[in-house]
Protein backbone atom coordinates (compact mmCIF):
# COMPACT_ATOMS: atom_id res chain seq x y z
CA UNK A 1 0.00 0.00 0.00
CA UNK A 2 2.58 2.59 -0.99
CA UNK A 3 -0.08 5.24 -1.60
CA UNK A 4 -1.11 5.14 2.06
CA UNK A 5 2.41 5.14 3.37
CA UNK A 6 3.34 8.78 3.53
CA UNK A 7 7.03 8.96 4.14
CA UNK A 8 8.74 12.29 4.39
CA UNK A 9 11.74 12.95 2.27
CA UNK A 10 14.56 14.83 3.90
CA UNK A 11 13.64 18.30 2.76
CA UNK A 12 10.54 18.01 4.88
CA UNK A 13 8.08 17.82 2.02
CA UNK A 14 5.65 14.97 2.16
CA UNK A 15 5.44 12.42 -0.57
CA UNK A 16 1.87 11.79 -1.56
CA UNK A 17 0.49 14.28 0.99
CA UNK A 18 -3.14 14.93 0.36
CA UNK A 19 -4.78 18.33 0.70
CA UNK A 20 -5.69 19.11 4.29
CA UNK A 21 -9.24 17.97 4.88
CA UNK A 22 -11.31 20.68 6.48
CA UNK A 23 -12.95 18.23 8.85
CA UNK A 24 -9.68 16.98 10.36
CA UNK A 25 -9.54 17.47 14.13
CA UNK A 26 -6.07 18.95 13.77
CA UNK A 27 -4.27 19.92 10.60
CA UNK A 28 -0.81 21.48 10.65
CA UNK A 29 1.07 22.79 7.63
CA UNK A 30 4.69 23.88 7.51
CA UNK A 31 5.13 24.08 11.29
CA UNK A 32 8.65 25.19 12.16
CA UNK A 33 9.62 25.81 15.78
CA UNK A 34 13.07 26.62 17.05
CA UNK A 35 14.73 26.96 20.43
CA UNK A 36 17.52 29.41 19.73
CA UNK A 37 19.12 28.57 16.40
CA UNK A 38 18.34 24.87 16.45
CA UNK A 39 15.04 23.84 14.90
CA UNK A 40 12.95 21.62 17.18
CA UNK A 41 10.46 21.02 14.39
CA UNK A 42 11.10 21.75 10.75
CA UNK A 43 8.39 22.29 8.15
CA UNK A 44 6.07 19.70 9.63
CA UNK A 45 2.83 18.81 7.88
CA UNK A 46 0.43 16.61 9.82
CA UNK A 47 -3.25 15.76 9.71
CA UNK A 48 -5.17 14.04 12.48
CA UNK A 49 -8.57 12.64 11.54
CA UNK A 50 -11.43 13.30 13.93
CA UNK A 51 -13.19 10.57 15.85
CA UNK A 52 -10.13 8.35 16.29
CA UNK A 53 -7.20 7.92 18.65
CA UNK A 54 -3.88 9.14 17.29
CA UNK A 55 -0.39 8.73 18.70
CA UNK A 56 2.52 11.11 18.20
CA UNK A 57 5.65 8.98 18.23
CA UNK A 58 9.34 9.73 18.02
CA UNK A 59 12.61 9.52 19.95
CA UNK A 60 13.54 11.82 22.85
CA UNK A 61 14.07 15.36 21.64
CA UNK A 62 12.14 14.69 18.43
CA UNK A 63 9.74 17.56 19.16
CA UNK A 64 6.65 15.56 20.16
CA UNK A 65 5.64 17.77 23.09
CA UNK A 66 6.80 20.83 21.19
CA UNK A 67 4.39 19.89 18.40
CA UNK A 68 1.40 19.91 20.78
CA UNK A 69 2.51 23.10 22.53
CA UNK A 70 3.07 24.95 19.27
CA UNK A 71 -0.29 23.78 17.91
CA UNK A 72 -1.93 25.17 21.06
CA UNK A 73 -0.05 28.44 20.77
CA UNK A 74 1.86 27.86 24.03
CA UNK A 75 5.18 28.42 22.27
CA UNK A 76 5.65 30.60 19.21
CA UNK A 77 6.08 29.12 15.73
CA UNK A 78 8.67 30.47 13.34
CA UNK A 79 6.26 29.64 10.55
CA UNK A 80 3.32 27.39 9.92
CA UNK A 81 -0.44 27.18 9.99
CA UNK A 82 -2.64 25.29 12.45
CA UNK A 83 -6.33 24.44 12.05
CA UNK A 84 -8.58 22.73 14.55
CA UNK A 85 -11.74 21.34 12.92
CA UNK A 86 -10.92 23.64 10.01
CA UNK A 87 -10.88 26.72 12.26
CA UNK A 88 -8.08 28.82 13.72
CA UNK A 89 -7.20 28.09 17.36
CA UNK A 90 -9.05 31.09 18.80
CA UNK A 91 -12.37 29.92 17.37
CA UNK A 92 -11.91 26.27 18.33
CA UNK A 93 -10.51 26.75 21.83
CA UNK A 94 -13.66 25.78 23.71
CA UNK A 95 -13.61 22.39 21.95
CA UNK A 96 -10.02 21.55 22.96
CA UNK A 97 -8.92 19.99 26.25
CA UNK A 98 -5.20 19.84 26.92
CA UNK A 99 -3.51 17.50 29.41
CA UNK A 100 0.07 18.71 30.00
CA UNK A 101 2.86 16.56 31.37
CA UNK A 102 2.33 15.77 35.02
CA UNK A 103 5.82 17.00 35.91
CA UNK A 104 5.03 20.48 34.58
CA UNK A 105 3.34 21.63 37.79
CA UNK A 106 4.25 21.93 41.46
CA UNK A 107 2.20 19.29 43.29
CA UNK A 108 2.70 21.07 46.60
CA UNK A 109 0.46 23.86 45.31
CA UNK A 110 -2.24 24.59 47.91
CA UNK A 111 -5.25 23.05 46.22
CA UNK A 112 -7.48 20.00 46.46
CA UNK A 113 -8.33 17.39 43.84
CA UNK A 114 -11.84 18.75 43.22
CA UNK A 115 -10.48 22.30 42.87
CA UNK A 116 -8.06 21.14 40.17
CA UNK A 117 -10.86 19.39 38.28
CA UNK A 118 -13.02 22.51 38.59
CA UNK A 119 -10.24 24.47 36.87
CA UNK A 120 -11.51 22.72 33.74
CA UNK A 121 -14.75 24.71 34.20
CA UNK A 122 -13.14 28.12 34.63
CA UNK A 123 -13.34 29.03 30.96
CA UNK A 124 -17.11 28.70 31.12
CA UNK A 125 -17.39 30.31 34.55
CA UNK A 126 -15.50 33.45 33.59
CA UNK A 127 -14.37 35.87 36.26
CA UNK A 128 -17.39 36.28 38.46
CA UNK A 129 -19.90 33.46 38.16
CA UNK A 130 -19.92 31.17 41.18
CA UNK A 131 -19.17 27.48 40.86
CA UNK A 132 -22.65 26.04 40.47
CA UNK A 133 -24.15 22.72 41.42
CA UNK A 134 -23.96 21.61 37.78
CA UNK A 135 -20.23 22.37 37.66
CA UNK A 136 -19.63 20.46 40.87
CA UNK A 137 -21.64 17.51 39.58
CA UNK A 138 -19.66 17.52 36.35
CA UNK A 139 -16.37 17.60 38.23
CA UNK A 140 -17.48 14.75 40.51
CA UNK A 141 -18.56 12.74 37.48
CA UNK A 142 -15.20 13.37 35.79
CA UNK A 143 -13.45 12.10 38.93
CA UNK A 144 -15.66 9.02 38.96
CA UNK A 145 -14.80 8.28 35.34
CA UNK A 146 -11.09 8.12 36.21
CA UNK A 147 -11.76 6.08 39.36
CA UNK A 148 -10.93 8.87 41.82
CA UNK A 149 -14.35 9.70 43.29
CA UNK A 150 -13.19 9.16 46.85
CA UNK A 151 -10.35 11.65 46.54
CA UNK A 152 -12.22 14.91 45.90
CA UNK A 153 -11.05 16.71 49.01
CA UNK A 154 -7.56 15.27 49.16
CA UNK A 155 -4.67 17.72 48.97
CA UNK A 156 -2.96 17.11 45.62
CA UNK A 157 0.44 16.67 47.25
CA UNK A 158 -0.76 13.40 48.80
CA UNK A 159 -1.44 11.72 45.44
CA UNK A 160 0.70 9.10 43.76
CA UNK A 161 2.00 9.71 40.24
CA UNK A 162 -0.77 7.66 38.67
CA UNK A 163 -3.42 9.47 40.70
CA UNK A 164 -2.00 12.84 39.65
CA UNK A 165 -2.29 11.81 36.02
CA UNK A 166 -5.92 10.75 36.56
CA UNK A 167 -6.72 14.11 38.15
CA UNK A 168 -5.25 15.87 35.11
CA UNK A 169 -7.40 13.72 32.84
CA UNK A 170 -10.47 14.46 34.98
CA UNK A 171 -9.79 18.20 34.63
CA UNK A 172 -9.76 17.74 30.84
CA UNK A 173 -13.01 15.73 30.97
CA UNK A 174 -14.67 18.53 32.95
CA UNK A 175 -13.95 20.82 30.01
CA UNK A 176 -16.33 18.74 27.87
CA UNK A 177 -14.26 19.23 24.74
CA UNK A 178 -14.34 17.41 21.43
CA UNK A 179 -10.57 17.08 21.06
CA UNK A 180 -8.26 15.79 23.80
CA UNK A 181 -4.54 16.54 23.47
CA UNK A 182 -2.46 14.54 25.96
CA UNK A 183 1.27 14.95 26.53
CA UNK A 184 2.79 11.61 27.63
CA UNK A 185 -0.26 10.50 29.66
CA UNK A 186 1.35 7.16 30.51
CA UNK A 187 4.77 8.44 31.61
CA UNK A 188 5.64 7.09 35.05
CA UNK A 189 2.18 5.77 35.94
CA UNK A 190 1.32 2.35 37.34
CA UNK A 191 -0.22 -0.38 35.18
CA UNK A 192 -3.69 0.02 36.73
CA UNK A 193 -3.69 3.75 35.96
CA UNK A 194 -2.58 3.13 32.40
CA UNK A 195 -5.46 0.67 31.95
CA UNK A 196 -7.93 3.11 33.55
CA UNK A 197 -6.79 5.99 31.34
CA UNK A 198 -6.94 3.95 28.16
CA UNK A 199 -10.47 2.87 29.08
CA UNK A 200 -11.52 6.51 29.49
CA UNK A 201 -9.89 7.47 26.18
CA UNK A 202 -11.60 4.60 24.36
CA UNK A 203 -14.93 5.68 25.83
CA UNK A 204 -14.27 9.20 24.53
CA UNK A 205 -13.61 7.80 21.08
CA UNK A 206 -16.81 5.74 21.26
CA UNK A 207 -18.64 8.99 22.03
CA UNK A 208 -17.25 10.50 18.82
CA UNK A 209 -14.45 12.52 20.42
CA UNK A 210 -10.92 12.78 19.09
CA UNK A 211 -7.83 11.83 21.11
CA UNK A 212 -4.25 12.77 20.21
CA UNK A 213 -1.54 11.62 22.62
CA UNK A 214 2.22 11.94 22.71
CA UNK A 215 3.27 8.36 23.31
CA UNK A 216 6.62 6.78 24.05
CA UNK A 217 5.90 3.07 24.48
CA UNK A 218 6.14 1.55 21.00
CA UNK A 219 4.93 -1.85 22.21
CA UNK A 220 1.42 -0.57 23.01
CA UNK A 221 0.86 1.63 19.95
CA UNK A 222 -0.98 -0.98 17.93
CA UNK A 223 -3.23 -1.89 20.89
CA UNK A 224 -4.17 1.63 21.88
CA UNK A 225 -4.23 3.75 18.75
CA UNK A 226 -5.84 3.90 15.31
CA UNK A 227 -3.63 6.52 13.70
CA UNK A 228 0.04 7.39 14.12
CA UNK A 229 2.23 10.38 13.38
CA UNK A 230 5.96 9.62 13.43
CA UNK A 231 8.13 12.66 13.97
CA UNK A 232 11.81 13.39 14.43
CA UNK A 233 12.19 17.14 13.91
CA UNK A 234 10.63 16.48 10.49
CA UNK A 235 7.44 14.60 9.82
CA UNK A 236 8.52 11.03 9.09
CA UNK A 237 5.32 9.10 8.45
CA UNK A 238 1.64 9.28 9.22
CA UNK A 239 -1.51 7.34 8.58
CA UNK A 240 -3.54 4.47 10.00
CA UNK A 241 -1.52 2.20 12.31
CA UNK A 242 -1.94 -0.68 9.88
CA UNK A 243 -0.16 1.14 7.08
CA UNK A 244 2.06 3.79 8.65
CA UNK A 245 3.42 2.08 11.78
CA UNK A 246 5.93 0.02 9.84
CA UNK A 247 9.39 -1.27 10.55
CA UNK A 248 10.75 0.87 7.75
CA UNK A 249 9.11 4.05 9.04
CA UNK A 250 10.22 3.34 12.61
CA UNK A 251 13.84 2.74 11.71
CA UNK A 252 13.82 5.92 9.66
CA UNK A 253 12.29 7.89 12.57
CA UNK A 254 14.56 6.49 15.26
CA UNK A 255 17.68 6.27 13.11
CA UNK A 256 20.15 3.87 14.68
CA UNK A 257 18.53 4.15 18.10
CA UNK A 258 16.41 1.03 17.72
CA UNK A 259 18.18 -2.24 17.03
CA UNK A 260 16.77 -4.61 14.41
CA UNK A 261 15.90 -7.06 17.21
CA UNK A 262 13.92 -4.40 19.06
CA UNK A 263 11.98 -3.53 15.94
CA UNK A 264 11.05 -7.15 15.37
CA UNK A 265 9.73 -7.46 18.91
CA UNK A 266 7.27 -4.66 18.33
CA UNK A 267 5.38 -6.56 15.65
CA UNK A 268 4.31 -3.47 13.78
CA UNK A 269 2.20 -3.90 10.72
CA UNK A 270 4.17 -5.01 7.72
CA UNK A 271 4.26 -2.13 5.28
Amino acid sequence: MPDMLRLASHDGALLGAQPTPADAALAVRGMTVSYGQKPALFSVDATFPSGVMSAIIGPNGAGKSTFLKAALGLIPMVSGEVRFFGLPLAQARSRIAYVPQRASVDWDFPTTVIDVVLMGRYRRLGLLRRVGRADLALAQEALARVGMEGFAHRQIGQLSGGQQQRVFLARALAQQGDLYLLDEPFAGVDAATEAAIIEVLKALKAAGKTVIAVHHDLSTVADYFDHVFLVNVRAMAQGPVASAFTTAALSQTYGGRLGAGQLDQLHPAKG
Partner: peptide
Amino acid sequence: LLRRPMTLVAFDPGHAAALGV
Protein backbone atom coordinates in the same frame (compact mmCIF):
# COMPACT_ATOMS: atom_id res chain seq x y z
CA LEU B 1 -11.88 39.80 40.67
CA LEU B 2 -8.81 38.14 39.14
CA ARG B 3 -8.42 35.26 41.60
CA ARG B 4 -9.47 32.58 39.09
CA PRO B 5 -7.14 33.47 36.22
CA MET B 6 -4.32 34.15 38.67
CA THR B 7 -4.85 30.75 40.33
CA LEU B 8 -4.92 29.00 36.94
CA VAL B 9 -1.72 30.71 35.82
CA ALA B 10 0.07 30.09 39.10
CA PHE B 11 -0.81 26.38 39.21
CA ASP B 12 -0.43 25.35 35.57
CA PRO B 13 0.46 28.11 33.11
CA GLY B 14 0.46 25.68 30.16
CA HIS B 15 -3.07 24.51 30.83
CA ALA B 16 -4.20 28.06 31.53
CA ALA B 17 -2.82 29.24 28.17
CA ALA B 18 -4.53 26.32 26.40
CA LEU B 19 -7.81 27.39 28.04
CA GLY B 20 -7.32 30.78 26.45
CA VAL B 21 -6.26 32.66 29.59
